[in-house]
């Protein structure tokens, strides 16, 4: 009798049918099409370019760069954020469409790094925008940035996007 309601058991023999939730399906799509905004501010951006290059090849995770915030899902803040740049960075972040994610790449974006004592450098990008993944290193290697991207994907897969409450 109960077997009638066991959808999984009933349909498991059908190779064309997969049962899942809408959240899981959409999250899978979102996680594997993370387009990132080119936000190269200092030497970290060289490593960011390497990560997009053929050896590390971040493209195979569905991630490719966009030159406009309006088409980006992810902001990789690669480099030193000066106080002069900070309002511009915030503005670019505000122009990105929800849902959006931020990787603070390298020591400078995390906390000011070697420029901690400088008069003109923002001590951590988290003072102006919310950060999802902090990536240490000065600069981090392409493998590390790939790992940070996988962490963001992990976070996206766990989200309940359609049931998210409005803030």
């Amino acid at each position: 009798m109960l077997e009638r309601f066991n959808m999984v058991g009933r349909l498991s023999g059908d190779p064309d049918l997969v049962l899942t939730t809408v959240d899981a399906a959409v999250n899978l799509a979102r996680a594997n099409s993370l387009w990132y905004l080119l936000m190269g501010l200092a030497c970290c951006s060289i490593e960011l370019m390497q990560t997009g290059g053929p050896r590390a090849d971040i493209d195979r995770f569905g991630s490719l760069f966009r030159a406009t915030p309006r088409q980006s899902d992810l902001m990789i803040v690669a480099g030193t954020v000066t106080l002069k740049m900070a309002p511009r960075l915030r503005r670019l972040y505000d122009q990105m469409a929800e849902p959006k994610y931020v990787i603070a790449m390298g020591s400078c974006a995390n906390c000011g790094g070697p420029f901690d004592l400088s008069y003109s450098v923002l001590r951590g990008v988290d003072k102006i925008i919310p950060v999802d993944v902090y990536l240490p290193g000065c600069p981090p290697r392409p493998e590390a940035l790939t790992e940070a991207l996988l962490k963001v994907q992990e976070k996206i897969r766990k989200e309940r996007y359609f049931l998210k409450k409005e803030a």
Binding site: L83, A86, P87, D116, Y119, L122, R123, K127, I128
Partner: peptide, 14 residues
């Protein structure tokens, strides 16, 4: 020169 504690509402002191 004394570095300010904030710039345009962004905290800069440590």
């Amino acid at each position: 020169y004394v570095a300010p504690q904030s710039y345009n509402g962004i905290e800069t002191g440590r």
